[in-house]
């Protein structure tokens, strides 16, 4: 994790802010420079809907160095209600309760921290909704 790179994108990680094509309306997360559907360069920042469902998941036992203290971590492939797919950690859930099709909501959580500089990295994670 490179602290300045994280800081640069922090608003996107906090609130799932991607962008939207002003010409054809297609929505993106992460944001794109050029619309992949119509080729327009006229895009505006756009907040993703927070609700979605799990279309796949994994229990990762050997994460990268930054996430080692939190292993195992649960990762979900989430389809948001606007059709955009994102990958994010699943939290506030027991591993045996994770299901394909499970409804989830994005929420702001601590992702990890920089053990040298003390910076805490926050971002979205997904929690189940009943």
């Amino acid at each position: 994790m490179i602290p300045i790179a994280f800081w640069r994108n922090r608003r996107r990680y906090y609130n799932l802010i991607g962008n939207k094509c002003k010409s054809c309306g297609k929505e993106y997360y992460p944001p794109v420079h050029i619309c992949k559907k119509c080729g327009s360069k006229d895009l505006v920042d756009w907040e993703m809907p927070k609700e979605g469902k799990v279309i796949s998941y994994t229990i990762l036992l050997e994460p990268a160095e930054e996430f080692k203290p939190y292993a195992p971590i649960y990762l979900g492939l989430i389809e948001l209600t606007n059709g955009v797919k994102v990958i994010g950690m699943l939290t506030d859930v027991r591993k045996e309760d994770i299901r394909i099709g499970m409804k989830v909501r994005a929420t702001l959580r601590k992702l990890t921290e920089d053990r040298d500089g003390g910076q805490i990295f926050y971002g979205y994670k997904f929690v189940p909704v009943e």
């Binding site: 790179a5 992460p30 990762l60 990268a64 990762l75 990958i87 950690m89 990890t112």
Partner: peptide
Amino acid sequence: HADYTQVVGTT
């Protein structure tokens, strides 16, 4: 993509 996969813990 470093900015959008590594940051959420994906390997």
